[in-house]
Design a protein around this nucleic acid. Structure first.
Lengths: 108, 108
DNA sequence: ATTTTGCGAAACCAAATAGTTGCATATATA
DNA sequence: TATATATGCAACTATTTGGTTTCGCAAAAT
């Protein structure tokens, strides 16, 4: 839990993905988050630490509570990484289009 | 290395992401892939096994060689997951738009 | 002033992970 | 046929991971 710390590793864990989705709707405290899972508050806190360290979440102290906010922009990193594969999807699609076009031709 | 096996976990490892990008350009054998890294061929084979098991790669035997092809469509799963956050980016953007619009108004 | 609540940090643990080395097997090549 | 090549698989290892329990501290509530 020490060395690597990037967005890809952060979203690898299903609990963290669930936390991220919860934070997408509203800022939440570790306790409030923990109620949604079977794990302890401390475990959730560890996940929040990881999310914070890779700038996917941001803590905001209010009294004795700490509300964690989602930094959704950080997710753009993943979106950007996916870009190089979108080209492939599109190519595949256009290839399928060609096949369909040829089938039409043959029918005529 | 046994239980979890999904796309998110697959792309968490930097070596696997590099393999994915290499495969995006062309089908490659484990040996050819291993030349690009410091690790052993066997280590690359293990990564390929993981990628294959979660349908990000597909092996195609040709003689004694096995060419691995990228199944880019599988990456759409991640793209789909990101969808729910794109709304937030857009919202932020439109909020910024509002701010800019208000600034314009004030100038007038 | 005392107790309760909310939190992070540290110490510890079991399981997963990424890597290694040493095979066995199948296909080319000499 | 004998050898070299390409690969996957099994066993083993060190490190990382996700979790727990225990603790201390600060802010609220009593």
């Amino acid at each position: 839990m020490e060395t690597r710390r990037d967005v890809f590793q952060a979203i690898a864990d299903p609990t963290r993905r669930a936390i991220i989705i919860l934070l997408a709707t509203q800022a939440m405290t570790p306790n409030a988050l923990a109620e949604h899972f079977q794990t302890s508050r401390q475990a959730v806190s560890k996940h929040l630490r990881i999310l914070t360290e890779c700038h996917l979440a941001k803590p905001e102290q209010k009294g004795r509570e700490i509300f964690y906010t989602l930094e959704a922009e950080k997710m753009k990193e993943i979106d950007k990484w996916l870009t190089q594969f979108r080209k492939i999807w599109e190519t595949r699609f256009s290839q399928l289009d060609n096949v369909l076009a040829n089938l039409k031709k043959q029918k005529k």
